[in-house]
Design a protein around this nucleic acid. Structure first.
Length: 261
DNA sequence: ATGGTAGTGTAACTA
């Protein structure tokens, strides 16, 4: 069994003890991390290696930053989606026979803003990249913080959120475009329910009241999806003292190693 | 019309 997960940690320096504890308890084989908020020079590499993991990272000061933490080393790393974009939001590598693509999609700030336009352009770019990645690698998992709640059942209060950033129709259309590149939302194979969220605002007791959104996703090509036995959100770390505002999303696979053979 | 909280870094931004 292979367990692959994604978690926006909102500062890896602050959350490192929680991340290492979670990895140990949940024995993930690979964890894709977003919002590390640390430059490569200051990355806590030795602490992660001392805990028995390999790690790749691509970060910057204060904002963004992604990493791949794994039990066994990954190969063939790629650190950028667009060489012209200085924001560190992308990290890809191969684990066994599967290409792993870790993304921190821009938040978009507000519909109609410059950041929103940047988000839609970034998603267009990702869509094109995934089309070619699927041809080149065949078996692909793309996971991370997509900053999009794909449908109303992924939103605690669709009426209040209607048309706003993370939920707006152009963002949802961009998400459907990613799926149309040949990917399956693993969580929705197993669960059709509403009320399942991966992010809750720090404010107004949102987690306690389960006022959240499902914006962190694990997508996979169909042969990989066929190996998936379970995909779930682990809300427990969101209840920690000094938590990230996101919860980890986990996918479990049988026979994933066979795909590369 | 934009509270409420958290991280970075020490004011104001991003989420």
């Amino acid at each position: 069994m292979t367990r692959i997960a994604t978690w926006n940690v909102n500062s890896l320096r602050v959350r490192l003890p929680q991340v290492l504890a979670w990895l140990k308890a949940d024995s993930a084989d690979l964890l894709a991390v977003q919002e590390t908020k640390v430059e490569d020079e200051g990355f806590p590499r030795s602490e992660i290696e001392a805990a028995g993991y390999h790690v790749l990272y691509c970060g910057e000061k204060t904002y963004n930053g992604v990493a791949l933490i794994s039990r066994t080393p990954v190969t063939d790393p790629c650190f950028e989606l667009d060489p012209a974009d200085p924001q560190r939001r992308f990290l890809a590598a191969t684990l066994g026979g599967v290409r792993i693509i870790n993304v921190y999609v821009p938040n978009g700030s507000e519909v109609g803003s410059e950041k929103y336009t940047y988000k839609l352009r970034w998603l267009e770019h990702l869509g094109r990249y995934l089309m070619s990645a699927r041809v080149r690698y065949k078996h692909v998992i793309v996971l991370g913080d997509f900053n999009i709640a794909p449908e109303d059942r992924d939103v605690h209060d669709p009426a209040t959120w209607f048309g706003s950033v993370l939920v707006s129709e152009p963002e949802r259309e961009a998400f459907r475009c990613l799926l149309q590149a040949g990917f399956v939302d693993l969580f929705r194979i197993f669960c059709a329910d509403g009320g399942c969220f991966s992010w809750w605002d720090y404010r107004a007791g949102a987690f306690r009241r389960n006022l959240g959104l499902r914006i962190d996703h694990i997508l996979a090509t169909e042969t990989v999806a066929a190996c998936c036995r379970r995909c779930y959100i682990d809300p427990a770390p969101r209840g920690n003292t000094r938590p990230s505002d996101h919860a980890p999303v986990v996918a479990e696979f049988d026979g994933l190693a066979m795909l590369g053979a």
